[in-house]
Amino acid sequence: MLFFSFFKTLVDQEVTVELKNDIEIKGTLKSVDQYLNLKLDNISGINETKYPHLSAIKNLFIRGSTVRYVHMDPRSVDCTLLQDASRRGKFLFLFITMASYSLPRDKKVRRTNYITEAVAQSSK
């Protein structure tokens, strides 16, 4: 659950996914689910000789189990928060998940805000 919540905070950010067959796919993270399946938009940087048809793809659903790495911009990660969440284990991220469900509809709300809120709540 921790990394499910973690990836939710990376939505709309540019990431590079490296699969277990060594191909790298760069794109905007659009969605993630509990199995860490990823959905990317605006994909680029794919091995054109092995998968030439991927140039005509509008969006890509990648099954979590075939992922080796996901590279991301360090500025989009709150390290202190992530460490804290890892120390507390699953309990904290229950809070975060709950908090994300009650997210206001306004998409401009910084996604990290609700996590900060959850941390504050859990340490009370």
Partner: peptide, 11 residues
């Protein structure tokens, strides 16, 4: 090198 990377546990 990578500045920030997620590593999937099954590897």
């Amino acid at each position: 090198k990578s500045e920030m990377v997620f590593v999937r546990g099954d590897s």
